[in-house]
Design a protein around this nucleic acid. Sequence first.
DNA 1: ACCTGAACACCGTTCAAGT
DNA 2: ACCTGAACACCGTTCAAGT
Lengths: 243, 243
Amino acid sequence: MLQVCQTGRMATRTSRTQRRAEALSRERIIDAAVELLDSAGDGGLTFRALTERLATGPGAIYWHVANKGELLEAATDGVITAALAAKPAEPADSPQDQIRAIALGLFDAIDRHPWLAPQLATQFSRKPWGPVTPRIFESIGRKVRELGVPKENWFTATSGLVHYILGAAGQNAANAASVRRLRTEAERAEFVDAVSKAWEELDPEEYPFTRAVADQAREHDDREQFLAGIDLVLAGITAVQLR
Amino acid sequence: MLQVCQTGRMATRTSRTQRRAEALSRERIIDAAVELLDSAGDGGLTFRALTERLATGPGAIYWHVANKGELLEAATDGVITAALAAKPAEPADSPQDQIRAIALGLFDAIDRHPWLAPQLATQFSRKPWGPVTPRIFESIGRKVRELGVPKENWFTATSGLVHYILGAAGQNAANAASVRRLRTEAERAEFVDAVSKAWEELDPEEYPFTRAVADQAREHDDREQFLAGIDLVLAGITAVQLR
DNA sequence: ACCTGAACACCGTTCAAGT
DNA sequence: ACCTGAACACCGTTCAAGT
């Protein structure tokens, strides 16, 4: 904690006046916010921590950014935009494969930035007119159109995919990130078992299904499982189309 | 704001000592928390507001509840449990219809308590070993089993449904709740158009698909659209099964 | 135009003290 | 065992003042 703050301060302090005249900008602030969120988690983004890292006062930040909500929004938007801009594997791929590629890109982004999961949920439900929702919707929707889905099903098919992707990526990736953070092999194995163990210890009368499925939850590979879900929704889109 | 606090205080103040000796309990605290969240939104749950409404000090609350996180968890769990306990329409219904009924129950719960949406996302991604995740998973999973899905697909099928339900319900219901809160017919119509209008005003070069779909987003009925998505995932489950 | 930093109102949580 | 309420550390935000 202390270490992080000190390094940040030293890194931006080398020469005082000159470097700062051009240093502080909306972009620099957003970058620092993302770094803070990545290293210290959801509660790590603080105006105190931000001012320390950028070697300014809160007033300076408020000159470039309206408030904390806008900052969080901009951080989310930046990371998602970068994730969506990553090149698709092959332009000649089938639309299905391109959808899988976009989905995996979002999966990995949430994996690297676990704070994205609740943030995306908030923005999707509270601010669908913000920049993030249309960006994701558009990139998936284009591929849905290429799939040959009839126009009246575009909206349903696209939001089905988007909801699944964000929901599943959020759940799986946050788990994976927690696992990765653990040091020893033993710690890691312990955590991987934790969820399915907790599920196996549920009341057999109340939770027969969840218990029966607990071993599947343990053995599955996160990415593989995620893609299986994508294929499920894709199959549904095709099936509904044929009716 | 002032109004809310004062009413709350007066309501719990009628007779002072006697009523309180048995009044304060974990359950009463959780109920008060839900009321606060419902009436004042996500930021409305405060230990200050809670103490005022319950006519106690913060220490008394901390005797029954570990911290704010636990309180939020308990509030979420209570509301979700109630939503899942609602009777299914007809026991003779097909598994598909029963899944639709459960899904609509969750949809309506999120509709009545919009703060559930980000809260569920957080609990699904951060605390899948908590009580809420297995509860939802179990009730959907049982019906998936009744659908005749082979065991190796149980996990994929169930999490596909659950992710879609929570994602779509969160988005649609929060919007609907905002709409309902508006007073005049004009205000309401304005809000309903707001999202699709914002989407129609997007850059035609960057957002051709989203723009093309904006009118569908405006005209759709929320519940109908939600059920169409459920059917999409159900169709996928059936289709994958047949392969 | 851009930045400083003290100050404000408010938050979750603790804890010695009471009953 | 259960409750009180003052106190603590910390938060987002403002604003008069500087350059």
